[in-house]
Amino acid sequence: MDTTERGSGMLFADPDPDAARAWFRTKSRRLESKVTTVRDAVRELVADGSYLGVGGFGTNRIPTSLLHEIVRQGRTRLGVAGHTSTHDFQILAAGGCIDRCDVAYAVGLEARGLSKVGRRLFETGALQVTEWTNAALAWRYRAAAMGIPFIPARVMLGTDTLAKSAAVVINCPYTGIPLVALPALYPDVALIHVHRADAYGNCQIDGITVADEELARAAKRVIITCERLVHTDEIRAHPDRTRIPWYLVDAVIEVPFGGYPGNVAGEYFSDETHLQAWMAADIDDASITAFVDRHIRATADFGEYLALCGGLARLQALRAEELMSIPVHEGTRP
């Protein structure tokens, strides 16, 4: 296939499927308990320099406890797939953890505004940046999940997004049309928060899965936090509901309210007040560092952070907001 155009961005992860196969060959497929703690999982599975893929969608079903622990343990030089990342990126940026980013969406906090600290990482050249799109990153995970080095698609073509990516334009061997060849993305570690998991790592997710099924299959290591740890019988009763099967998973930790201050569907709504507090602090390095010191570095674990943010009463209010303040018929016409 002819190469007609090549993006100038850096490829941060090796797309070689045989190197990945050699790795995946060594992963245990045994049914054995992977239950551990947030502290141990991060200590053992996330190294300085690791490339991370983060599940959920920015402030929705994000693995906050793992992100905080990465900051608490002072991991540095991390790479991150900026795939629909918002508050997750803000945490890692504020913690001084990252030095490279495959960016489709970072810095922005959707309707809430922008992370100034995240923005400054880009503007000062502190980050190595390669551009992509949301679909491109989801499909790069999919290529990795399929065990192939690239996947063709019809996005990014003709734009500067492609020029600053690490993608290559090829001609289709069947139709002759130009296609973008998206390189497989095998993150070193995936961090994913789910509703339910058993001790082996079989995971159920309620609602949209975003790109987590692809991410879990693409990553070399997968750390799962779950709202509730359940008996395997509950998994076996509904095997069709298993979105991430055990053989993908390296660590399982029960972290109730583990997606706070984000939204977890059917469990609790996002804490807009606390997210505003993050934004108010996210104005300069001193201010955000003080905020992160107080909320993350000075707390022993995620439980202490939740307590600092209002504890059970606040969480129950968010639960009420998720479950009851959305009357079924309000605002909808038959």
């Binding site: 810095v107 922008l114 990014m156």
Partner: peptide, 17 residues
Amino acid sequence: DHDRPKTRLPGSGGAND
């Protein structure tokens, strides 16, 4: 300029797609 921007914006997200 992309590599040393005056202002960094969020990026494509899904808009390009």
